[in-house]
Design a binder for these strands. Structure first.
Lengths: 375, 375
DNA sequence: CAAGCTAACATGTACGTACAACTTCAAAAT
DNA sequence: ATTTTGAAGTTGTACGTACATGTTAGCTTG
């Protein structure tokens, strides 16, 4: 069968499609009967039925026994022309991620893509389940937030399966070390650096830092925090660097903050918080010890979320464009799906900046017994 | 055609499916030829071809002209056995909705369903676009948060199309008046009633209420607020009932609160806020007028969100189980899809309760010139 | 005028014949 | 031993007949 002579049922199908596309028949209009089409096309009723059957299966027509065959409304067309994109996140209601999803969804909607959303509860086994389930669906691309990104990747085989299946994927916030997919993220190291730098430039010399180090984001923010201290020659007390993880985030930072705030000779003059959520929690620790922010201890958050302005003392916070991150991730994934993304250096990294509010102020001696011993 | 005697081509299809499911034939195994199946089943080759054609269309088999018919590998199966559920929301990053989605997604994941997420920006035209797009996908059910629920339903035809297509759907938070689908929601009227009742029982007699009335949730909360005043015989000043809408929510409530707080002779002794987000905003208005919560004016929020504990004065708030609402909605929709939902009285309504914190206290005269004139 | 009935019309199922196009395997040729 | 050819086998297209099931419109009756 060469190109010139297609099967008759294909030719009938194309004739009917041309009627639909030229709007000779509009949605819910009735087509000629099978008998009429048979005569019109000079083919048998069976051949007409085969053409109609294919168009029904594709959602272009619907049939009603005893009544006739009708043009389907646009909404009844199938998904052949609507790519399905998966978004796999750790926590759907995490206080930042909904804004990233919002940005992604707005781009995907605009581009006529359907978005599947799924979550892992920051648990590697659930990450695996989700990856398998999403792959079994009609997936054309995947945006992934890694799960406990600092703790390795036991689900590597699932990611390799995505590559085998030629499903493009990218990661947001961090990337598993052994994968080579693009990553769309904030420069967390720079964020931690800017936070500490801001406080150092305000004269603070005893700065505590609280970091959630089971995610690479926390590790990177800590790295920047340390780098600022080194560059500005400010000494750091080891007990002023607090690590915590998903499992103990409700208790450990609060307890350790209480402990260090209750000792006047060891008290930090400022605190860098891993994020605004933690900052709200440590604000309470400051109050509990009858100190004030920023009069007694300055504080800086991260993410510039709506929590930063919900508190009585508005938080100075490291800011980054959350919805835009989602948008750029979606745009990049679509480009990858279309084969129009550059093959190298595809990471997109947003530089954060500091939004100054009321929670940080210059360090003042204030009759304290403390003496600057650095610089 | 009654239940007992299915069409022959259906029976052949089921025979072949039973082979696949019992693993008599595994992925990539070759099935008996059409001629052999014809003899085995006692039907014509055409009938066998029809059964095979359906299974090919469903992705269970693939055929190779001149070679044979084979069982498709698992990853090539279509999503026939993984239902796809749409969730249509107004704002993905709305401070409450992510928790509802989280609850729904956890149930859907457990039940092996894929979840499509889409948003309308509380805009009716986008609601329409989304409904058309979701319907064009492989949708088996839909969970919908109505868009500006108090303002009618210009997209009724889209909802009727869902019914025509026999796609079950339900609504959360409110239902469009002319639709008869199930609704899963909080009893907003009771919530508004409890909020006002709580303040009245604390002795407050001049209570302001702020309600977002372009959503039926706001209208119902207002209704309960009014009912409490009527039942307890407390008079209500019209200027103490503030309506606002999506478009002016950033400005109008704040301005009107400032206005009423600045006039000592008209100042309310307590404020009912449509939600915690608004409460945080009105806390700032109270501060701006150098008043204190709860010493000078009590305040109660709604939703018991994490904003309620982010503030310095922890908010008394009307509480309801947000993630559970999402879970119940997903369970009900699955039951509807399986035909196991009761056909009547399917609404699920959660009774809210009050979580007492620090933002409300009993009314005291405090040297004010005010005199109780009611009760 | 409304309700019920029936015949005509339209799609759904099933069988059959015939030939086209492709694949596989065995036999023949090199 | 390897390559080529041809026959047999298998799926794909197309036509036809016959009957089942459901819908619709027109006619009749109350």
């Amino acid at each position: 069968m060469n190109e010139k002579t297609k099967p008759k049922h294909e030719q009938v199908k194309e004739m009917i499609l041309s009627w639909i596309e030229s709007e000779r028949y509009k949605p819910n209009d009735q087509l000629p009967t099978e008998h009429e089409l048979s005569e019109l096309s000079g083919t048998s009723r069976q051949t007409v039925r085969q053409a109609l059957g294919t168009l029904v299966q594709e959602g272009r027509l619907y049939r009603k026994q005893g009544s006739g065959t009708y043009v389907a409304a646009l909404s009844e067309r199938r998904t052949a022309d609507m790519p399905t994109i998966g978004v796999l996140t750790t926590y759907i209601s995490d206080y930042i991620f909904p804004q990233i999803v919002r940005g992604a969804e707005s781009v995907l909607r605009e581009q006529g893509c359907l978005m599947l959303l799924s979550s892992t509860d920051n648990d590697k086994a659930k990450e695996r389940d989700n990856l398998l389930m999403l792959q079994a669906g009609p997936l054309q691309g995947l945006i992934i937030e890694p799960t406990k990104s600092a703790q390795g990747n036991p689900n590597l085989d699932c990611y390799l399966a995505l590559e085998y299946m030629k499903i493009p994927y990218l990661m947001i916030n961090e990337r598993y070390a052994e994968l080579d997919c693009p990553c769309v993220k904030v420069d967390d190291e720079l964020g931690g650096y800017l936070a500490a730098k801001h406080l150092i430039e305000l004269g603070h010399f005893r700065i505590a830092g609280f970091f959630k180090t089971d995610d690479l984001q926390g590790t990177q923010r800590l790295k920047g925090f340390l780098r600022a201290h080194r560059e500005f020659g400010v000494q750091l007390r080891p007990e002023h660097v607090v690590h915590y993880a998903t499992e103990n985030k409700e208790t450990r930072p609060f307890e350790l903050a209480l402990t260090m705030l209750e000792k006047p000779e060891e008290r930090p003059t400022a605190i860098v918080c891993y994020n605004d959520e933690l900052a709200v929690r440590l604000l309470e620790a400051v109050r509990r010890t009858e100190l004030r922010v920023p009069e007694d201890v300055s504080m800086i958050g991260f993410d510039d979320s709506f929590l930063a302005t919900a508190t009585e003392v508005k938080l100075t916070s490291v800011s980054h464009p959350k919805a835009e991150l989602g948008m750029k991730a979606a745009e990049l994934l679509i480009a990858m799906m279309e084969g129009s993304a550059p093959s190298r250096n595809r990471d997109i990294i947003f530089a954060p900046d500091i939004v100054l509010r009321d929670s940080t102020k210059p360090y003042e001696k204030n009759g304290d017994k403390f003496v600057r011993t650095n610089v």
